[in-house]
Design a protein around this nucleic acid. Sequence first.
DNA 1: TCTGGGGTCCTCGTGCCT
DNA 2: TCTGAGGCACGAGGACCC
Length: 394
Amino acid sequence: MVAPETDYRCIIHIDADAFFASVEQRDNPDLKGKPVIIGFPHGRGVVSTCSYEARVYGVRSAMPAVQAYRLCPNGIFIKPRMERYKQVSDAMFDIFDRYSPVIEKLSIDEAFIDASGEDGVQIAAAIRRDVKHELGITVSAGVSYCKFVAKLASDSCKPDGLRRVSREEAQSFLDNLPVSRLPGIGPKTKSKLDTLGISTIGALRQMPETWFVRVFGKSAKRFQDMARGIDNEPVTPWREPKSVSEENTFEKDIDSTEALKGHLAILAQNVAFRLRKARLKCRTVGIKIRFHNFSTITREHTLSEPVSSDAEIFHEAKALLEAAAPEKPVRLLGVTAKGLVPETSRQAPLFEPPESPWDDISRSMDRLRNKYGKPVVLLGSCLRSRTEKEQDTG
DNA sequence: TCTGGGGTCCTCGTGCCT
DNA sequence: TCTGAGGCACGAGGACCC
């Protein structure tokens, strides 16, 4: 039995195993032991996640679903049910709450839990037990003195594992791992390091400081620290959102600007609705256009006054689209709101100027949307796009 | 061979202001 | 009045993560 991690900071990283697929297998026991793939095998989707039975065939997250279908034609492809996963996720986080007040949510199925001063291994084991008994899914846990080592520890014992890496063990644990396991080293940086003959964190650690600065620029210190197992990042329970966006990849590329405007209206309306729901406004509106050849451009505009109405956000996005004047077929269109400020952040002036007429209209539209669960009043271009879609689908 | 969606962070170029 | 440096905000793009 290892000594309790009470001398130092103690961080637990919890990560659900093949979360979406596990929820599907739990809800439908017929799927247990079968290759379950979350994603639609036709069209342009990718695999969200897949069960460990599907991984045997080489199927992986983020792989194009058609490729997954070729690798595993007998796989059971399931369209994601995000609402359901959200319910299970909420229940899982309720369990975490029992054990620590300091929880940092990383994603729908993953969290850091600060267990400093406690026996981290015991807490992680209790959480794993509760999640399994109450929710019927398994989670893996890593326990260590800092966040990124805890995360690597949980990765190393998946699925359904628990691993503690003490401060003393950290360096030898890290040295043998591939560099790509360090957070922040993705495919591009990995291939750059490959060409330099650096494949493990241990090899990276031995490089001189000047080398780090040359390769990683301003991020050099962070990578050098990580290679040495140094990470003082606290567990941060809440972060202000920095942007809200929505994008859509079309089933078929679109080359008509008018049709794009219709889709843009829907995206703008959804982004605006989410802003208002979060009681936020944005100062910057941006659009993203991805062409048939996957090249991508972004355009944005910062306003003098923050906005959150459907009409104002659509107006800005439309102006950006018209200025960009895409001449090639478009496969993806997106709208982003950033420079977020609270709805009420504006200092109250001595004489309240009349608020934008769109604010009042937006509030009425939101009431209807909340009542019926979907947008009821649509912007003009929006309606046009929807009508086209309905005609397409008959 | 085909590459989703929703995010964050970083870098670099440019223009404006002092 | 001109010029250059430095700071800053903005815009675009890229890399990365889950």
